[in-house]
Design a protein around this nucleic acid. Sequence first.
DNA 1: TCTGGGGTCCTAGGACCC
DNA 2: TCTGGGGTCCTAGGACCC
Length: 439
Amino acid sequence: MSRALALIDGNSFYCSCERVFDPKLASVPVIVLSNNDGCAIARTAEAKALGIRMGEPYFKIRQMCRAKGVRVFSSNYTLYGDMSSRTNAVYRQFARDVEVYSIDESFLDLSDVRERDRVALAKDLRATVRQWTGIPTCVGIGPTKTLAKLANHIAKAVPELGGVCDLTDEAERAAWMVGISVGEVWGIGRASLARLTAMGVDTVADLRDLDPRPARQSLTVVGERIIHELRGRACLPLESVPARRKGCAVTRSFSSRITEREVLEQAVAAHATRLGEKLRRDGLAASVVTVFYHTSEHDRGDPMRSVSTVVHLPEATNDSRHLIQAAIHGVAKTWKEQGPTPWRYSKAGLVTTDLVPLDQAPRPLFDALDRERSGALMAAMDACNSRFGRGAVVPARAGLVAKRTWSTKFEMRTPRYTTWVSDLPVAKAVLAPAGHPHP
DNA sequence: TCTGGGGTCCTAGGACCC
DNA sequence: TCTGGGGTCCTAGGACCC
């Protein structure tokens, strides 16, 4: 039986999550903003129709949103993450193998489903996901990941298809490809698009017809693979077991500019605390941390400064206290005082790229860090925070300053409906008086 | 006034080794 | 007239993704 993959994704996923818990949002324009309520990162069809672009800064469209009745939300990642795992639980009932590709997209292996049954199965899947989670989806089917992605794009763009597009048939595929811009292909970004346009490659069909080997010159092996995939030859396997992550970063823009060393230290200490949580969740440890902070490119006229420094830890660790120490050391060794107009820093972060499983990390002959005690202490801290909420217990260094003026803004965030008991939505049932229609 | 965060992969070039 | 060649590893930067 031929290989068949499906790509299913949530339509305007973050917005759809908000709609699930507020029926009044059903047919009005909705957008969800990035951290600090900075940019629009999810838009419903109604919002797109108003001309709101992906990544559009919110301050530029605030007035328009007010005037047009756009409902605006801060991002609620706790909610979206939970809704994501619910949709994936449904996918797993329909496919023998599932690769969770991102928070709102998954590849499904449908190779064991008869070719003529695949579209019906996909429609059944959509309906089930809609009924069980409330999330609307689209499905693209094809013999390779790149073709399944393309099919998904068509399913979204052509409503008459009913949310499902199957590109298994080669002739049908070819017919679609002549009408779609090459920029829609998965893996073709701005730079490749410019190069292809210069070469006279405008449609997906044009790209498919390039000779793969010479195409490597301008598009690297990535482009060569894409051409093979467009021709139906699979180069990208389904990865149902997630690969171990290689790096981990915690970076944030401040909600207001920072000029004082003490405040910057506190911010990187908070980032280090979060980094430790993420590493411990995956059982990983880092032995090198890159600390960076910089002024904003938007603050034209202000003095600019961008700092990035590498701090080595005595051995691989995921103990928040060690990471905090490293983060503060990174600030200490790079901090500069400047006279009358101090630098106004807009963002800071920590980046690790050398992660290893903690239990496989080499240990020095004479331990610099007491790993056993550290593990027990961190586990206790994580348990408290999971029970009482993140930040219930933090290392003193990361929590001493009461007023955190730099903390990320989420001024329009909805409750954690599905993951926090006190935030559970309340449904009220009203009994209609006899003889009256149901209200 | 106000412009996100977190990943992966690839390539080129330098350091180093035999 | 002078010139090595070929391998690995690491890093920085670019490109792309959601």
